[in-house]
Write a protein that binds this DNA or RNA. Structure first.
Length: 503
RNA sequence: GGUCCAUUCGUCUAGUGGCUAGGACGUCAGGUUUUCAUCCUGGUAACAGGGGUUCGAUUCCCCUAUGGACUACCA
C-alpha cells in the first residue's frame, strides 16, 4: 500500500458534533495503525457560514480527545496551506483546466431564476435538475453563442462554473465499507464547481486539495455517498487516480429516528459536542459534564466499529492496534447516553485516588469547603466505586462536610424508635471515652458494647447513621465517623437526639 | 417525488450455509453489604416480512416494508 495520508476536513461553521469527532477519530486510528499521516484541513469555502471561534474549537476538541494532528494550520507541513480560503487562486486554476477541456462550462443563470424553475417543477410534482436534458435551455456557455457569453464574461456579469455531467453513463466505484456501487449519470446534475463569489464549492475544492495533499484514503460521513459519483467523474476529468473511499454510517438519536442533533441533546440532557460552545447559541460539552476524554473516545470508537473480540475497554493505543476499516459497520448507530455513563464509571475506577482528589478539591472549593489532599484521598477511596463522575463524589460525601440539617422522613419513621435516644446517649458516652478515635477502634468498642448488653446491632447502627448522615445512605458508618472525627461525631449525636426526639 | 445506503435482543454489536444465535449496556431476580450504592451470580430479550437457491438458510439472490442520507452558487 502506498503511503497512508488521511485528512479530517471540517468546515468552521460552529461546534464540532460528536459524529464529526468520530470521523476524525477513525481517520486518526487508521493513520496511526498504518504508519500514516493525519491531516487537519479547514474547509472554509463558504464565507457566509464562517463562524468566529470554530477553528479553535475544532483544534481544542481534537486535542482534548487525544487525537494528535500531524499536519495542519498550527502544526504546519509541506502540503499547505491547510485552510482552503488561503488557496482561492489555486482552485480557480483547476476550474479553468476543466473548462478548457470541455468538461465544465460557465453558467449565468441567477439564483432567482433557478429558484423559480425549482418551485415551478415542484408544483408540477417534479424535480428540476440542471443536467444534459435541461442545460441547452439555460443561460450558459454551452447554449449561448460564443460571442454572447464571452461578452457577458467581459462585462463582468456574475457566473458560476458547472461540471458537464455526461448524459447517460454508468459510473461505478468502490467503497471500502459498502462495496461496489453503480450510478447512472442521467440521475446526476451539473453541479456548481466554482461560485460567483470566487470560491470553489466543496466538490471542486476537496478533490483538488486531496490531490495536492496526496490523500490516500478519504474517510468521511455517509452523507457524502450520493455525491461520490460526481467526485469520481472529477477525478476522471482531471486524469487523476482517485483515493480509496470509506463512507461511515451515521450517528442516530437515542430515541426515535434520524440523525443525532443538538436538539436531542438539549431535550434529553446529554451533550452532543465534546466541549462547551461559548458563542451565540451555547451548547454543553462532554468535557464540562465531567466525562474523561479517554472514556469518551472509547465509547465513541465502539459506536460503529468493533474489533470482533469481547473487549470493551480500550486505551487509545489499543484502539490504534486493533482498528481496521473493514470492521466498521454499515448501518447507523443509535447513541446511548447510559452506556457513555458506564464507560466513564469504568475509567473513573482506574483513576488514582490522588488524581480524583485533586479534581474533587477544585469542585469542593466552589462550594466553600477545604481539606488537605491527603484527607481527600481517603475520602475518595471511600466512595470511588459508587460514582461515575467526579462531580458525583460530592453527592456521595456532602454529609462528610456538614451535619445534616434535615432528616429523611421515611428513614426516621422506620429506624427512629422510642429507645433510640437512650441508646445513642449511651453510645455517646462510650465514644467520648475512646482515646484513639479511628474507624477500627470505634467499631471494635461499639461491637463489644452491643454484644455485652445484648442490644440489637441493626437498630443501633441505623439510628446512629441517621443522626450522622441524616438518611440511610453512604459508606461504612465507622469510616464516616473516623473521617469527621470525634468532636463532630458527638455533636451530631447530640443534635440528632434533640431534633428527632421532638417527632 | 427521484437517486443512493441500510435492516440480529430496548440499545451497541459478534456471527459470513449446519451454533442451545455469543458478548456489553439497560432491565429483572437472588447473593454480598448491619444503610444506600458498588460488586458478584443468574434470568429476560433478536435474525423486519414474503418469495426463491440449497439436503439445509441469520448468512446467497429477488421483491416488499421500514428507516436514513442526499437532492443549494452549504459543507
Amino acid at each position: 500500500m502506498k503511503q497512508v495520508r488521511v485528512r479530517f476536513a471540517p468546515s468552521p461553521t460552529g461546534p464540532l458534533h460528536i459524529g464529526g469527532v468520530r470521523t476524525a477519530l477513525y481517520n486518526y486510528l487508521f493513520a496511526r495503525k498504518n504508519g500514516g499521516t493525519f491531516i487537519l484541513r479547514i474547509e472554509d469555502t463558504d464565507q457566509a457560514r464562517y463562524v468566529e471561534g470554530a477553528e479553535e474549537y475544532i483544534m481544542e476538541s481534537l486535542e482534548w480527545c487525544g487525537i494528535v494532528v500531524d499536519e495542519g494550520i498550527r502544526e504546519g507541513g509541506n502540503f499547505g496551506p491547510y485552510r482552503q480560503s488561503d488557496k482561492k487562486a489555486i482552485f480557480r486554476q483547476y476550474a479553468d483546466i476543466l473548462v478548457d477541456k470541455g468538461d465544465a462550462y460557465y453558467a449565468f443563470d441567477t439564483p432567482g431564476q433557478l429558484e423559480s424553475l425549482r418551485s415551478e417543477a415542484e408544483k408540477a410534482g417534479k424535480t428540476f435538475i440542471y443536467n444534459a436534458e435541461k442545460r441547452d435551455g439555460m443561460s450558459n456557455s454551452l447554449s449561448l453563442p460564443e460571442a454572447e457569453w464571452r461578452d457577458k464574461l467581459d462585462k463582468g456579469e456574475p457566473y458560476v462554473i458547472r461540471y458537464k455531467m455526461p448524459a447517460n453513463e454508468d459510473i461505478s466505484f468502490e467503497d471500502l465499507i459498502r462495496g461496489q456501487i453503480v450510478v447512472n449519470s442521467s440521475t446526476l446534475d451539473d453541479k456548481v464547481l466554482f461560485k460567483s463569489d470566487g470560491m470553489p464549492t466543496y466538490h471542486l475544492a476537496h478533490i483538488v486539495d486531496d490531490k495536492i495533499m496526496e490523500i490516500s484514503h478519504v474517510i468521511r460521513g455517509e452523507e457524502w455517498l450520493p455525491s461520490l459519483p460526481l467526485h469520481i467523474m472529477l477525478y476522471r476529468s482531471f486524469g487523476w487516480d482517485p483515493p480509496a473511499f470509506a463512507h461511515l454510517p451515521l450517528l442516530l438519536k437515542p430515541d426515535g429516528k434520524g440523525k443525532l442533533s443538538k436538539r436531542d441533546g438539549d431535550k434529553m440532557g446529554f451533550p452532543v459536542f465534546p466541549l462547551f460552545w461559548p458563542y451565540g447559541d451555547t451548547a454543553k460539552g462532554y468535557r464540562e459534564d465531567g466525562y474523561f476524554p479517554d472514556a469518551f473516545i472509547n465509547m465513541l470508537a465502539l459506536l460503529g466499529w468493533n474489533p470482533g473480540t469481547e473487549q470493551e475497554i480500550f486505551s487509545m493505543d489499543e484502539l490504534i492496534n486493533s482498528f481496521s476499516i473493514d470492521r466498521v459497520g454499515k448501518s447507523g448507530s443509535r447513541f446511548d447516553p447510559e452506556k457513555a455513563r458506564w464507560f466513564n464509571h469504568q475509567y473513573l475506577q482506574h483513576r488514582s485516588n490522588t488524581e480524583l482528589a485533586l479534581e474533587f478539591r477544585d469542585l469542593l472549593r466552589t462550594r466553600g469547603y477545604h481539606d488537605d489532599i491527603v484527607k481527600l484521598e481517603k475520602l475518595v477511596a471511600l466512595v470511588k466505586e459508587r460514582v461515575s463522575f467526579v462531580k458525583d463524589i460530592w453527592t456521595q460525601t456532602d454529609f462528610f462536610f456538614k451535619a445534616p440539617d434535615t432528616y429523611d422522613q421515611d428513614a426516621v419513621k422506620k429506624r427512629w424508635k422510642d429507645d433510640s435516644p437512650k441508646l445513642l446517649m449511651e453510645l455517646k458516652l462510650l465514644l467520648t471515652d475512646i482515646l484513639d478515635f479511628s474507624a477500627s477502634s470505634a467499631e471494635k468498642a461499639i461491637n463489644e458494647w452491643t454484644i455485652k448488653n445484648g442490644y440489637n446491632t441493626g437498630a443501633i447502627m441505623n439510628a446512629f447513621r441517621l443522626v450522622i448522615v441524616g438518611s440511610l445512605r453512604g459508606p461504612h458508618l465507622f469510616d464516616i465517623i473516623g473521617w469527621i472525627g470525634k468532636e463532630e461525631t458527638l455533636k451530631r449525636i447530640d443534635k440528632g437526639i434533640t431534633v428527632l426526639s421532638k417527632y
